[in-house]
């Protein structure tokens, strides 16, 4: 059962990483336009960004 010492923190860290990633994606506005995002994924040529796009 000593394996728990590694596994439990590992599991929590993985979950925590998922949460942080979610909060970051929310903050960077990735949920603002769900309809558009669905189409952007399959658009063939995005116009090349002229400057770092995000606020």
């Amino acid at each position: 059962m000593e394996i728990l010492v590694i596994l439990v923190p590992l599991a929590l860290m993985l979950g925590g990483a998922g949460l942080v990633a979610f909060l970051w994606s929310l903050k960077s506005g990735q949920y603002d336009d769900l309809d558009g995002a669905a189409w952007r994924a399959i658009a063939d040529d995005e116009p090349a960004p002229k400057a770092p796009a995000k606020r």
Partner: peptide, 24 residues
């Protein structure tokens, strides 16, 4: 429409961002 608008507007010089929000 989204691609057309973004391309059309980005082509104007000095435009730094042209982004369509399809939901809104």
């Amino acid at each position: 429409c989204m691609a057309k608008i973004e391309r059309g507007l980005s082509a104007i010089p000095d435009v730094t961002l042209a982004r369509v929000n399809l939901t809104d």
